[in-house]
Design a protein around this nucleic acid. Structure first.
Length: 244
DNA sequence: GCTATCGTACTTGATAAGAC
DNA sequence: GTCTTATCAAGTACGATAGC
């Protein structure tokens, strides 16, 4: 077990030796010169050696004090560095990325490990939601959504494009593309339709066929996923870096 | 045995006065 | 102006005691 003098006394001595003044040491430590005098006197009695030579309006460090001073100076420097390292927290960038639940589960999550390895200084937070993203609320820094844009006030970048093709079960016995006209079709409910919107009508047009017959309730309808910021669109997914 | 309370001793630091 | 010494006040540590 270590037998050490009071830390306050050692601290007072180190400050007084550095300044060669009880007064300035007291100012540094936030105590009175008397307290410094007490502390050093106590330390001298404890050690049995004189650390300072008191002169009129002046103190000089003794040879014994000169032996002790550099040891304490280096020790307190080491304390300060250790405490700085202990309390310092590296600044980390946090990126909150919003994406649809399906895209998050199937595409983003399997790639998290690679992202963290490539960006060790960035903490990635995923916000899985099919709802529109309001960037003003701070819920996300960027979002991946299905849509065509443009989205006013946001910066978009196309990540992927879709290819649309008819798919059906072999049990339906369809052999020709014309056979699709007589079948119930799955329709998206696009909120904004223009000449490039991937509708069945466009597909039949590109295939050189007359439009599909409407089957009413027999057709299956699926709502278009929403784009970021409440914008609607078709054609590509878009990623919006933060505009904040 | 554990916890709370009280009294005593010690530590720390401030004030005042004086020396140099 | 700076440091020392005497004195005092406040805080802290620790042991004794009482109550549960």
């Amino acid at each position: 077990m270590r037998q050490l003098p009071p830390l306050s006394a050692l601290r007072a001595f180190e400050a007084a030796a550095r300044h060669l003044s009880f007064k300035r040491a007291a100012e540094e430590l936030g105590v009175t010169p008397t307290a410094i005098s007490h502390q050093i006197r106590q330390l001298e009695e404890l050690l049995g050696v004189r650390l300072f030579e008191r002169r009129t309006r002046q103190v000089l460090i003794t040879p014994e004090g000169q032996l002790l001073y550099p040891v304490l100076r280096d020790g307190f420097d080491a304390f300060a560095k250790a405490l700085d390292a202990l309390t310092a927290r590296p600044s980390r960038h946090v990126l909150t990325l919003s994406a649809t639940t399906a895209f998050t589960a199937r595409w983003l999550v399997p790639r998290i490990a690679a992202f963290r390895e490539a960006n060790p200084g960035t903490d990635l937070r995923l916000h899985a939601s099919d709802a529109p993203v309001d960037f003003r609320s701070g819920v996300a820094d960027a979002a991946i959504r299905y849509g065509r844009g443009p989205y006013p006030g946001l910066v978009t970048e196309e990540l992927f494009s879709d290819r649309f093709a008819p798919v059906c079960s072999p049990r339906l016995g369809m052999r020709r593309k014309e056979d699709l006209r007589s079948r119930a079709l799955l329709h998206f409910e696009w909120r904004r339709v223009d000449r490039d919107t991937p509708t069945w009508r466009l597909w039949f047009e590109r295939a050189g066929l007359r439009g599909p017959r409407r089957h009413g309730r027999d057709d299956l309808h699926r709502r278009e996923p929403r784009a970021p910021g409440g914008a609607r669109g078709t054609g590509h997914r878009a990623a919006e870096p933060a505009t904040r």
